[in-house]
Amino acid sequence: MTVDATRVRAVVLKEFRQYRRNKFILYTMVVMPIVFLFVPISTILGLSSSLPESAVRGAVGSVFLLMFIIPVVVPASIAAYSVIGEREQGTLEPVLTTPLSREEFVLGKALATLLPGALLSYAVFIVVMAVLRTAAHPNVVHALWQVPWFVAELLFAPLLAAWSTWVGTAISVRSSDVRVAQQLGTLASLPALGITSLMTFQVLKPTVVVALVVAAVLVIIDVGAWRVVSHLFDRERLITGTAASRSVP
């Protein structure tokens, strides 16, 4: 399997152009992060200064859980639309008659979905942390301003976005209805949060090593998911609705 960067870049660029021209997609991307911008800030700023340390840690954990939900939720519905949307518009067949391989196609689609998801997560994270750093109680800031959380956010945001993207794309390549694909895509991508929740709920003590290990697990899952989605991508099924005996690469 060889992946050509030029073709992948062409897919990504085309997707970005479509996002720019499609206000619905832009709103979908932006609304959710805005909600997640205000909820953690109001939660933390509303904490009493006399709260015990465990309660503060719990509240901080919930903030990061919200931060990790953004990269999961934002790409999910867009990824779920990615392939079946092309099929419904009638644009898929011409694309599949080019030398573009299925790996390149799904990778391009995935990158175009997960990059905005990850970048929006970073943006929200930076704003939330900056506001809380200046306005929150020092005890809370102490619990919040820990290196492991920064490492976790840096690594988990793209990896969770990638997972969500793969799940959405997998549903998209096998679904026959856009609405079902989008609903399923969002729901099916949530279980990935289970891994990161081990940190946010303090089941695993948030340390840099734990963050790196969890990130490594997510990398393995994401790479595996890319391969699985690539194999699920069946040109014949997508064009005719009938599965091929062997799939064409």
Binding site: A10, L13, K14, R21
Partner: peptide
């Protein structure tokens, strides 16, 4: 939603 040029640019990329 893409222009004629943009549609063709996409395929230029796919054919390298």
């Amino acid at each position: 939603k893409l222009s004629v040029n943009e549609n063709l640019e996409f395929f230029v990329g796919l054919y390298r």
